[in-house]
Design a protein around this nucleic acid. Sequence first.
RNA 1: GUCCACAUCGUCUAGCCAGGCCUAGGACAUCAGAUUCUCAGUCUGAGGACCGGGGUUCGAAUCCCCGUGGGGACACCA
Length: 440
Amino acid sequence: MANGVRVRFAPSPTGDIHIGNLRAAIHNFLFARHEGGKFLLRIEDTDRERNTPQAIASLLDYMAWMGLDFDEPPVYQSKNLAIHKEAAERLLKSGHAYRSTKGAEGKGEAIIFRLNFDVSYSDIVKGPLAKSAADLKDFVILRSDGTPTFHLANVVDDIRMGITHVIRGDDHVENTFKHVPLFRALGAEPPRYAHLPQIVNEKGRPLSKRDGDVNVGEFRAKGYLPDALFNALALCGWSPGDDREIMTREEMIEAFSLERVRPSPARFDYRKLEWINSQYIARMPAERLRKLLDAELASAGLDAGCRDDNWWKILLEPVRPRLKTLKDFVPLVRTFFEQPETYEPKDVRKYLAEGNGRRFLEDLLGAFGAVADWTAQSAGEALQKYAEGKGLKLGEVAQPLRVALNGRAVSLPMDATLFLMGKDEVLARIRRCLQRTAGA
RNA sequence: GUCCACAUCGUCUAGCCAGGCCUAGGACAUCAGAUUCUCAGUCUGAGGACCGGGGUUCGAAUCCCCGUGGGGACACCA
């Protein structure tokens, strides 16, 4: 099924990947995989000042993080400079271009491509597009300093790489009227084009850095999973045509087609990404999740070294549905590593000062103390039995206990909390709370 | 200003190309109810859209025209 499809993602490495570009990369990837073709990477590193080695390393790192595996070694555009120049000279000889100093302000002669004829092409997502000679004008392909412009470099490299489909943002639609004739003048058949709609912000304008959260790095830092981001971005401008939204990569590959990409701009839905992320967390294998969460603890300076498999097993179940992102984890479990610094006054008043909360806590000291084998089940049962014995609803004792253990009336379910905290710690915290809130 | 596309719930979209199956489907978000030891989650339900105007047609969200709106492109940037 190798039908010769070759596509490329051609970012200029400026340190981080904008989600608009990332979406283009994803669609290129999906298309290549769907067609059984090749997905290539070309690093457009001709701007030497901005394109540092670290920027390139970070680009490669993000590609790997997203699982955007390319099929051939990356092509570095900066290495093709001589070839670009040679192409410009060939166009000069063939009469497609000419030398001129126009608009250069004394910089010397540049090579200009002659564009004085009608151009048309058929875009896979936008349909047939045409421009008449009157609306087109000659353009520079080789600057007076001998360096190629984007248009020349882009086209020459695409020819060299055997690119069959160019899938990119639709801010390039107009450029294509330059690129198509360039391909022909260089004796090559132009590739098929698919221009992806822009991703816009709240105001309908293209996403810019000022909007915040536009770079992959920011999403990674905020605890989003690469697969969730991939899924959300794949759905940006594209849909499988049925009602599926959460899809595995294989399902997306299977369903993907450029014909189904919408031509109109799309706002990126951050809330939906959040939801998608929570879905991925909910479905993720426990082993992987544990590894990721362990890293979260480490970066928060919390040592989980002494926690065993069972501890994690008990923890994961109630934690999963509470995570929208990985960053929600530490606040949920900090209480298992550190005593509460303060007791929420509102909760103290409601659950300890006003009712019989303090009495319950004192009783619980005994009830818990009597539990020999401390598990989530046994600790939970002790609590339940105590409540039943008093003719109380579980909540009536659970809430005061929450305040004593966590400093506030919100926590994971009590059975898990009791176990995860450990018997000694539970008893110690109850005593401490009784002391600190005495007379409150 | 010129040229080019675009326009369905608050948002992302299905439907449009091949007009009737659309009293316009799904998802996120919102609201309500249920479950419940808190918070989440889950389940059930509700509200919510074819930009406007003309045409074509027995019939238009779907085809055509005009208008409007927001956008893109007009560099010796990429």
